[in-house]
């Protein structure tokens, strides 16, 4: 087996993770402060990167199933976190069932149905299913919250999976797999970069009413670092020209930031700190993929518009 661009990219990610883990290890030995959460976070990254790598290397189908599972866990977290009506149990059940259907369209490369199934058919069907219980009290709130959750956790995330089945092009032998790696890596890297810049240099709060720990320094530092990394890595795994690589290098960190604060606003409204406790050190799965819910559909359409 010869190593292709995609393998080099994966090796690079593992190298970066190893370097980051060493830094965290040294910091935790030297520092007086308790860094157990940071250590836990780093350990969780190893697990997540390992799972992702295995799925990625085995087959596209496995990767699509993994994304479907991520959507399921995220939607379950969302439904467990928000106020729901007992009368809507059946509606929630239908919402869950839409996950395998939506990911089947991905597997089937059926773009037309993939693009409308949730925003059109489920959008129309869920309120209908809800009114069958004949409980109108709380109807609007219920339909609104259920649809938003479905869009965020299933529709948005499924765009990441759809990248996978985009075929290789002349300028990009890595095909959809390369694009997915580019998106997921930069989105997650940007989260860490914004966090790190913010911890080191953060002074001016950017949106204290929603997320008091986010700063302008963190945001701009993260955007800058991700931008540079996008330009370096784009020729390896994407068909992007320099201008498009630069555009993607801005799109991902900015959209990622907005996704992050959107889920923060939701958590503030509900009065919870984390969306769950599935990933030690990080919180719930929605805490980890909040930025991806915004970057995945935007990056997908950016790529599709210019290259497919």
């Amino acid at each position: 087996m010869t190593l292709q661009a995609i393998h080099w990219a994966l090796i690079g990610i593992w190298g970066l993770l190893t370097a980051a883990s060493l830094i965290v290890y040294i910091l935790s030995k030297r520092s007086e402060k308790n860094l157990s959460e940071l250590v836990q976070r780093t350990q969780s990254w190893w697990v997540m990167v390992a799972l992702f790598t295995v799925a990625f290397l085995v087959s596209n189908t496995i990767s699509i199933i993994v994304f479907a599972l991520i959507s399921f866990l995220a939607l379950k977290e969302y439904f467990s976190m928000i106020p729901t009506r007992r009368a809507d149990r059946r509606v929630l059940f239908w919402a869950y069932l839409s996950i395998p259907v939506q990911y089947f369209w991905v597997y089937d490369s059926y773009y037309g149905m993939f693009a409308v199934f949730i925003p059109v058919y489920m959008f129309l069907f869920l309120p209908f299913a809800s009114l069958l219980s004949q409980q109108t009290e709380g109807f609007l709130k219920s339909v609104g919250t259920l649809n938003w959750g479905l869009m965020l956790c299933v529709f948005s995330i499924s765009h990441a999976a759809f990248l996978l089945i985009l075929p290789p092009t002349e300028g990009n032998s890595a095909g959809g797999a390369g694009l997915l790696l580019f998106l997921v890596f930069l989105t997650q890297f940007n989260d860490v970069a914004q966090y790190t810049w913010g911890k080191l240099f953060g002074r001016r709060k950017i949106i204290p009413g929603v997320s008091p720990n986010k700063t302008w320094e963190g945001f701009l530092g993260g955007v800058g670092t991700t931008f540079v990394l996008a330009i370096i890595t784009a020729p390896l795994v994407t068909p992007f020209s320099l201008a498009h690589a630069a555009a993607a290098g801005l799109l991902i960190p900015v959209a990622g930031f907005i996704g992050d604060v959107t889920v923060s606003a939701l958590k503030r409204d509900l009065g919870v700190k984390d969306t769950g406790s599935l990933i030690p050190g990080h919180g719930g799965i929605l805490d980890r993929i909040d930025s991806l819910t915004f970057t995945a559909p935007l990056f997908f359409h950016f790529t599709r518009y210019f290259y497919y």
Partner: peptide, 15 residues
Amino acid sequence: GKALPKGSFLLVPFF
């Protein structure tokens, strides 16, 4: 009780 309340046979996932 949300996942499977008394009187229901439909299991709906919740954490």
